[in-house]
Design a binder for these strands. Sequence first.
DNA 1: AACAGTACTTAGCAGGCGCTGC
DNA 2: GCAGCGCCTGCTAAGTACTGTT
Length: 564
Amino acid sequence: MPDLGNSHGLLCVCSRWEEEKKEDGIKWMQLEHRGPYFFYYDGKPLKLSLATEEIATFYAKMLDHEYTTKEIFQNNFFHDWRKEMTSEEQEIIKDLDKCDFGEIHKYFVDKNEARKALPKEEKQKLKEEADKIQEEYGYCIMDGHREKIGNFKTEPPGLFRGRGEHPKMGMLKKRIMPEDVIINCSKDSKIPEPPEGHKWKEVRFDNTVTWLASWTENIQNTLKYIMLNPSSKLKGEKDWQKYEVARRLKDVVHTIRAQYRKDWKSKEIKKRQRAVALYFIDKLALRAGNEKEEGETADTVGCCSLRVEHIQLHPQLDGQEHVVEFDFLGKDSIRYYNKVSVEKPVFKNLQLFMKNKDPSDDLFEHLNTTFLNKHLQDLMDGLTAKVFRTYNASITLQEQLKALTNSEDNVAGKLLSYNRANRAVAILCNHQRSIPKTFARSMQVLQEKIDAKKKQVEEAQEEVKKAEDEFKDTKDSKAEVNVEKKKKLLKRLEEQLARMNIQATDKEENKQIALGTSKLNYLDPRITVAWCKKFGIPIEKIYNKTQREKFAWAIDMAGEDFEF
DNA sequence: AACAGTACTTAGCAGGCGCTGC
DNA sequence: GCAGCGCCTGCTAAGTACTGTT
């Protein structure tokens, strides 16, 4: 049984094909299998054609996932699967419920186990092979510099699983062939060779874009790209530029806020809607909310695409006035739920916008992101809706760090402050994660450790007392030394306990919050670099290796007095 | 203004690797 | 030396924003 499901194509898609070039007559160098496995239809074993079998394996591999039980997933899969069947197979296989993928599933589970159980040397060998491919295909030369490529493999075929209630879940994602791939490079460079017997879709020489290769995927009919790693000069400069735009917003944000407050009272309803939306984007860090094609994607919204059903107005709630209750699915179908007290004119406007509308009607029916962004561009060069997220995230980090960091704290304490500042931003941007499966358990383990440590501290306290008493009685220098020794021990234990308590607090506060996204995409790294320098925190405590590579520009340039 | 197409950033998750504590 | 766990990395989906065409 060939492993049809795992074959990634490489950028040049070549390596896999090249790898397989053998001497004349030699078809393979190694072959290991378990004989045929059976696919059962309606209780009877059925031999599938190669293409049909491959798609069956895609489904079989996913059997452990809940989404294979969803009707949309099953229907999409079955529809696409049947399209690839031979006419004989189509005649037989008419009902997914009669398909038994159990044996195929087991085959892959076993195979996975076998791979995990491989001896160390074998694993080492596999790793070396992967490293070799990385070395060969993972880099490009741009303007004389060797730069790391972000993703140099084409995506393997499989079944599409979108996020949330995606109408296309279960559809067949087809294998990318060289004939699908457009190569972009410079004319005078050595143009990558397509695999033997194959041709590229196109080779172009466009130096106004950054991608090295692209193809169109068949699910949404959109382009996918091979681009550089964030550590590259090209990406780094772009990143820097992004934060510079956000910093310029800092200078004009007060004017802009004054402007949208004025526009809340505009005679034009369109302006009012724009002003209220902008208030949300600024205050709540909502995304812009482009229109999406209905039925093509999960039903998610951003600010401009909010519908009446996504907010509830409460003139009074929990002792606050003019409360707007938001409840909608945003990017990646992550729920945004928030109750916010807004300024009175905003509340009045929302009442007006919602009047005589159905729940499914647009809240801002006169507004779209193009119109909003055009306005923002007039207010500041380079300003778009997403800049507000970057700006508010970064300025929040800076303010929170200022407010929370205590220079008397030890490193652990300062790191907790950093994490809390980071967390404030993640909450603002609604960056969530599912609670880790092992959370409750590992929390309990930590708590037990803390309890044990507490006991040790108490014991040490008594030891100190005892030693002191003995010294009082004897005035013996030996006893004096002992007191010091016991005190030292106590201090160490207390510090350990404090560290553990910090850790527990941090963990608890973090269970449903994802810090990574804001750290990587929203927080000007120079703020962090400056903070580290100011408080003598090694940068490695905040940024891991990958992050340090991505933020090399900031680590290079920011001093301890950097201000966002 | 609507629309399609393109290029790029932002996003959460799975799985594996390496570190820590026994 | 090993098991368990947490962090890192790779993966790829899902956004934003802009351009050109009709």
